[in-house]
Design a protein around this nucleic acid. Structure first.
Lengths: 338, 338
DNA sequence: CTTGGCACTCCGGCAGGAAGAGTGCCAGAG
DNA sequence: CTCTGGCACTCTTCCTGCCGGAGTGCCAAG
């Protein structure tokens, strides 16, 4: 086990490196942090930390920089979450309250996160998985053509065109609409399939084909739309990454364009609270020199989606975590109100 | 006026510079293009071209590179539009035909354009301005709460929640729905206001307040949604820009995140055909070292939206223009079919 | 108007030297 | 056993001067 002081040294190294972006040496450390020991002692500690794999030196006779493992220890044991200042909190709230619809909420959130953390922000649209049905509507566009509209309690609306196998009468349609709604409104998506299973039985044989089609489309919509959309922003902040640009930034931009990758990234974070994935802990290769801080957010007790930021492993973890957590909370509030 | 040969020299310079990214000198020119004159002659021509402002040299005794003005001349007079190869055309068509809905069409288009041109692609969602109403639906969610759903012929669906000043009966609602649709279905958005103006007169005084609210929301939706959304992709291609990265790439990324800027950019291109804006011709400062190639596309004869690419001024104009034009055509076809 | 020749300029790369920062190790003190 | 100061060593970085190459501009001749 590492002694108290060695942990303190590691913390100091991380803090200094995050601030200066330069390898940090023993002398500078003793000066900037008032460690009560001499540089020589710190050197010994550093040697020990290096043996354990927490820090490394780019070349002999250079200062040390933290490794992924070092950051991990820092995040787990040494760093708290830095709360935002109250002006910041107020700014967040004001900014988010101006949103007019769901797209706007997500858009504002992304910009806010990017600005607060000065990193790339990723916000997943509220998931349909946990949400409930507010209304289902069927519109007859033509004798054998319907439109299905699904409205969720998170304010999302999905629509599908349906080509029916046979024409369907307006009264039957109204009947179907009424029955459908009485069964599924207020219910969770996951419950819907079993709730509508026996619906066709209530109708004439002539109409059953159409009704089957409608129900199939509805269930399909519920499933398909569980695949999430997301919005990203603040990519310009990538330019602050480092000096060895093209090599670093390219794979990150590529990864960010692959929504699938990002969704997986957010999805993997199972921790109910905040998740921090550091460097190579990220599966995706392009992101192996970045860290991802993510957290679930939602209108009620349950998380309906995730949001987070992507930045260099050398990031201000306490500050970033504070911002991410705060934004998630306020977005949750906004969603609950609307 | 510039002589024929001097134009030829300019063309050669542009082509070589686009290929090599390095200033091109007189000797290399005579070798790579079989100009029938000596380097010395070319030097004289270059001096003339430089006097006219078509080319410039980074430093004394370096080769020449084209200026914005030089590219402009090249695009206007010297370059054709390079048609795509037929395998490319087939690939485009196949790729776009797999799309399942509007979002998917736009998403695929953006990826396609980015891949074909190896630059940043921007695609505007089909505009509602020119499109017509396919259906208007009113759903009673609660006694005094409605949802308005607007379906357009471009496949777009917009919805709005309406809080009514007074409860409205189901029969009145059905009546309103029927009248509304009989008047506006098939009509252009711009026509709608005058068509529905006198609708409230057909109803009882009790309901007029609510109906006014509904109509107001409808008109508002039509206007608001003229503000376009757009999708961008291929930002990773920015890393191919040049070697002086952070300075170049940052303002571009920032500009790309400002949808307003991009919309203005596309909107400014009034030319019915293809528009090419080179370097400083772009108003936005961050884009002063980029060129924008854009073109309108649409399902019928009329353009309903724009798409294009953003790349370095040093780009392959004929190839890029060819790709942009081809993609626009195929997207138009796809939209017309659906 | 074109051509070859020639002097000139400037960039880029390379070697060598000096400075600075940081390390590792050791021996001695607490 | 831990901490400390000292010292030699290692690297990187920066600056300098130097050379070669590429390209230009100008001039005089064809």
């Amino acid at each position: 086990m590492l002694s108290e002081r060695r942990l303190e040294v590691l913390r100091a190294i991380v803090q200094d490196y995050v601030g200066t972006e330069e390898p940090v040496g023993s002398k500078a450390l003793t000066e900037r942090h008032n460690l009560k020991v001499s540089p020589a002692t710190v050197r010994n500690d550093m040697a020990a930390l290096e043996d354990e794999g927490y820090i490394a030196q780019p070349h002999t006779s250079a200062g040390r920089i933290p490794t992924d493992k070092g950051y991990r220890l820092f995040v787990d044991k040494l760093a708290g979450v830095k709360p935002l200042s109250s002006p910041e909190r107020r700014a967040i709230q004001n900014f988010l309250e101006g949103a007019v619809d769901l797209d706007d909420v997500v858009g504002r959130t992304v910009r806010l996160l990017a600005q607060l953390t000065r990193q790339v922000a990723v916000v997943q649209y509220p998931s349909l998985t946990r949400s409930t049905v507010r209304h289902v509507e069927l519109l007859g566009l033509a004798p054998a053509r319907l439109m299905l509209v699904l409205i969720t309690d998170t304010g999302r609306v999905e629509q599908r065109l349906i080509d029916c196998p046979a024409p369907i009468g307006e009264t039957v349609l109204a009947d179907l609409r009424a029955r459908l709604n009485s069964r599924v409104v207020g219910e969770r998506f996951t419950e819907v399939p079993s709730l509508v299973q026996d619906l066709p039985e209530a109708f004439d044989a002539d109409d059953r084909g159409t009704i089957q089609t409608v129900l199939a489309t509805l269930l399909e919509t519920l499933v398909e739309e569980t695949e999430e959309r997301l919005m990203i922003g603040g990519t310009a902040n990538l330019t602050r990454f480092g000096h060895d640009f093209p090599l670093t930034i390219r794979p990150v931009l590529e990864a960010l364009e692959e929504q699938v990758v990002l969704l997986k990234l957010l999805g993997e974070a199972k921790d109910p609270g905040m998740t921090v994935r550091i460097g190579h802990e990220n599966q995706h290769e392009g992101l192996s020199s970045t860290s991802v801080v993510s957290v679930g957010y939602g209108s009620g007790d349950e998380a309906v989606a995730k949001l987070g930021v992507v930045g260099p492993t050398r990031m201000d973890y306490p500050g970033t975590m504070g911002a991410v957590r705060a934004v998630a909370r306020y977005v949750g509030q906004i969603l609950a109100e609307s």
